[in-house]
Design a protein around this nucleic acid. Structure first.
Lengths: 226, 226
DNA sequence: GCGCATTTTTACGGGTTCTTTATGCGGCGG
DNA sequence: CCGCCGCATAAAGAACCCGTAAAAATGCGC
């Protein structure tokens, strides 16, 4: 496991250099994007643990970048801006940003906010327990039981199940599952889902051939029913 | 175990000397830092069992030191201060300090609080003792038994086991184990864990090849099950 | 300074997990 | 009735992770 990866979307080379050295010195891996288009792509490619986004970008507004990222990931987003205007700040936070730093800013403040954001994101997001059929899943312990016996789930199986559990009872589309578990570059690889849904049914359903909870919604996605 | 390591972050040489002799006489190993910057570094370098931090430091506030340490370690932190103000006390405790001593203080009081903090920290989730399989571990005495016979654990083995015990039944990620045991600079050195988990299994498991309690969660971390 | 316990580093074989591919089934519309 | 599409299933190869042993370096007490 490496240090956290941070995506920096910033057009001004000076500020980019400053961020690279400040964050790099703390052991973070830094990925840089000079504009909004690259930023949204890099977010999908590198799947960073946190994104720092400048609001004033040459091609399209930073708020757009935030919206794009928020379509598929809950990663913490830190907004950077020279503007004092309250409006853009509100817009950015509404779009899903987590925190806001106004230029000029000091290294200490920036690093503190980065750490705070990462710490906050590290908290277990989903509620602790989930029960359906003979299966009991504890997301905090990262443990699954069936008929009281421990069942081992691989990292991907767990993320997939967690994604379904977050939308308990609702249909989750192929696209949404794929982007949240494998990243937006695999948004079309529906065969992954077939393989892993079978694994989950095999491990958690009483009768994997006639699933009662891990349900298929043909042509749309999957649904977890309790 | 009387050989706990204590980090003292204190700028005044007189008080430092006083602490060094008082704590040294009790058998503690003492590491001294004259300012906040060195303090945060030394905490990562020496991985002390307890930190004593003065609030009034020349470079930056002791509360900052506490926050830095708390980002990666749950080690007990004892605050030292001449201030009577209630505010800084609250601030320090909010930042994650465990106890507070107001100057001037007596040797007896200090040592009592140090012992209390170490005793408190030595305990995993519940109670100071942990039993699994044929193994019995007393975290306060730093003593391990297997089938009634004493088993010697090295300092790192003990910290690793304590970290797992503190989260009994939960998966603890590679990153978390590494930062708590080796410090935040080694958060990526997963090979350490492989070596030491094997040692622990060799010493504590009935069948080290088929561990029943020190379990591995491939790609994620390790788990202590009872 | 010396010897010992401990920690760190390195290399490799084996195991798990992920990805890819192939095949069969069933519904639906042409 | 047949072909197409989406899904389930199985299985194999690739990539990655882990266990293991052993040597090298470090640090501590004497």
């Amino acid at each position: 496991m490496t240090h956290a990866t941070i995506l920096v979307v910033e057009d001004e080379p000076d500020i980019r250099r400053f961020l690279r050295s400040s964050l790099g010195a703390e052991g973070y891996r830094v990925v840089e994007s000079p504009n909004g288009r690259r930023g949204t792509l890099d977010a999908g490619m590198h799947k960073p643990d946190l994104a720092i986004v400048d609001l004033g970008l040459p091609d399209f507004d930073g708020v757009e970048v935030i919206r794009h990222i928020r379509e598929w990931s809950p990663m913490p987003i830190l907004v950077l801006s020279a503007r004092i205007q309250e409006r853009s700040k509100v817009e950015a936070l509404d779009a899903g940003a987590d925190d806001y730093v106004t230029k000029p800013f000091g290294v200490g403040e920036l690093l503190a906010r980065v750490r705070a954001a990462l710490r906050h994101a590290a908290r277990p997001a989903s509620g602790t327990e989930l029960n359906f059929g003979e299966a009991r899943i504890n997301f905090e312990k990262r443990q699954a039981l069936r008929d009281g016996a421990a069942v081992h789930l691989t990292p991907i199986e767990f993320r997939l199940l967690a994604c379904l559990a977050r939308h308990l009872g609702m249909v989750v589309t192929h696209r949404q599952l794929l982007t949240e578990v494998w990243g937006p570059t695999h948004a079309a690889d529906t065969h992954y889902l077939r393989v892993y849904m079978k694994q989950l049914r095999e491990k958690l359903e009483a009768d994997p051939v006639q699933p009662k909870h891990l349900l298929t919604e043909t042509g749309v996605g999957y649904r977890l029913a309790d």
